[in-house]
């Protein structure tokens, strides 16, 4: 019953879409029916899944890289005021620069291959993870640190056994946001790099090819739907994974 109600709105929108296209009389406008056929075709020949796999591989690469850089740096900035004072201006001046804005430099220096895509993703995911790690460290219940101190536990051990786990819920929120942003950034990057033609692959470039080299608007719609669906699955998947791995942070 609940799934039925959840499906009601999307179904109504699809019906509305079909009606609007019929009313417009445009022969090239994608209809739900032509889009569905196109989706089946793209699934059957494997091109859609291959493109998604390419994009996902880059996103995971960049995401892991961003996490490995941002979490230690965030821990250092959150615990050591001297580190934060010196790095905060730098972080705050780079943070508003969108990942897509550094694309020209990345293409110039690194090219249009996987490494360039991973760099864009890592840059995009880096800031939310860093900011949430710092905030998480600063919000730690001070009495937990005091409790560890009274047990004579050394500062370095405290970092690993108290600060990191106490900040983990906030770090995980940053990772979720970072993964979402990484996924949007890779699509945008591949779309832009796609202009340089055929070698880079990925779902973003697939969209660009549909746009530039064919009149298959339904193909673009299939890509859009796939991007949205994957974003949702990524978030759900990460949430489920984290809830399993850290049961205490999801009481």
């Amino acid at each position: 019953m609940r799934t039925l109600r959840q499906l009601a709105l999307p179904l109504a929108l699809i019906v509305l879409w079909e009606i609007l296209v019929a009313l417009s009389g445009s022969p090239r406008a994608p209809r739900p029916s032509t889009t569905a056929l196109k989706a089946v075709e793209m699934l059957a020949d494997g091109t859609l899944l291959a493109a998604l796999a390419t994009s996902l591989g880059r996103v995971f690469g960049g995401f892991v890289l961003a996490t490995l850089l941002a979490v230690p740096l965030g821990l250092a900035m959150g615990t050591l005021p001297v580190v934060e004072r010196n790095l905060d201006p730098l972080v705050e001046s780079f943070r508003p620069i969108a990942a897509i804005a550094i694309l020209p430099l990345v293409i110039l220096w690194i090219g249009t291959g996987n490494l360039a895509a991973v760099t864009i993703v890592a840059y995009a995911a880096f800031f939310p993870i860093l900011i949430n790690t710092i905030a998480g460290v600063k919000r730690i219940d001070r009495s937990l640190i005091r409790a560890a101190r009274t047990m004579g536990i050394s500062p370095l051990t405290r970092l690993r056994t108290v600060v990191l786990p106490a900040a983990l819920p906030s770090i995980l929120v940053g990772m979720r946001i970072g993964l979402g942003i990484a996924w949007t950034a890779i699509i945008a990057a591949e779309l832009a790099v796609g202009a340089k033609a055929g070698t880079s692959g990925g779902i973003g470039q697939m969209m660009f090819v549909f746009y530039a080299y064919s009149i298959q608007l339904s193909g673009i719609v299939v890509c859009m739907a796939a991007v949205g669906l994957v974003a949702m699955l990524l978030d759900r998947g990460l949430r489920a994974l984290l809830a399993r791995a850290f049961p205490w942070s999801h009481p």
Binding site: L144, A147, A148, M151, G152, T157, P165, A166, W248, S249
Partner: peptide, 30 residues
């Protein structure tokens, strides 16, 4: 470690089980 403190607000580690909390000082401390 010659003095132990019990805090008013418990100050238990939420990511540790009962066993992990009780054994925390033994596992990680002097």
């Amino acid at each position: 470690p010659d003095r132990g403190v019990m805090f008013q607000d418990y100050a238990l580690f939420p990511w540790q089980t009962v066993r992990g909390n009780v054994g925390f000082g033994l596992t990680h401390g002097p």
